[in-house]
Amino acid sequence: MEEQGTFEGFEEITNYSHFKEKSTRKFIDGFFKKHTIKAEAEDYANSLICIAYNIDRYNSAASPKNISTLMESYNNTMASLRELYPETPEIDGSLASLLTESQAK
Rank of each mutant, 00 (worst) to 15 (best):
residue 1 M to V: 08
residue 2 E to Y: 05
residue 3 E to Y: 13
residue 5 G to F: 15
residue 6 T to C: 15
residue 7 F to D: 10
residue 7 F to T: 08
residue 8 E to V: 12
residue 8 E to M: 12
residue 11 E to C: 08
residue 12 E to A: 07
residue 12 E to Y: 10
residue 13 I to A: 13
residue 13 I to L: 14
residue 13 I to R: 15
residue 15 N to D: 14
residue 16 Y to N: 07
residue 19 F to V: 13
residue 19 F to E: 04
residue 20 K to Q: 14
residue 21 E to F: 01
residue 28 I to K: 00
residue 28 I to D: 00
residue 29 D to P: 00
residue 29 D to M: 04
residue 32 F to T: 05
residue 33 K to D: 02
residue 35 H to I: 06
residue 35 H to K: 08
residue 38 K to H: 04
residue 39 A to T: 13
residue 44 Y to V: 03
residue 45 A to L: 03
residue 45 A to T: 02
residue 47 S to I: 04
residue 49 I to P: 03
residue 50 C to T: 06
residue 51 I to K: 04
residue 52 A to N: 02
residue 53 Y to W: 11
residue 53 Y to S: 03
residue 53 Y to G: 02
residue 53 Y to R: 09
residue 54 N to G: 06
residue 56 D to W: 07
residue 58 Y to M: 13
residue 58 Y to A: 14
residue 59 N to I: 06
residue 60 S to A: 15
residue 60 S to H: 09
residue 62 A to K: 07
residue 62 A to M: 04
residue 63 S to M: 10
residue 65 K to H: 09
residue 65 K to D: 06
residue 65 K to Y: 13
residue 65 K to N: 03
residue 67 I to N: 10
residue 68 S to M: 12
residue 68 S to I: 08
residue 68 S to G: 05
residue 70 L to E: 01
residue 71 M to G: 01
residue 73 S to L: 14
residue 74 Y to N: 03
residue 76 N to F: 09
residue 80 S to M: 08
residue 81 L to H: 02
residue 82 R to T: 15
residue 83 E to M: 12
residue 84 L to P: 04
residue 84 L to Y: 09
residue 86 P to F: 08
residue 87 E to F: 14
residue 88 T to E: 15
residue 90 E to Q: 09
residue 91 I to F: 08
residue 91 I to C: 00
residue 91 I to T: 09
residue 95 L to C: 04
residue 96 A to R: 15
residue 96 A to N: 12
residue 98 L to Q: 10
residue 99 L to A: 06
residue 100 T to L: 07
residue 100 T to N: 06
residue 101 E to K: 14
residue 103 Q to H: 11
residue 105 K to W: 08
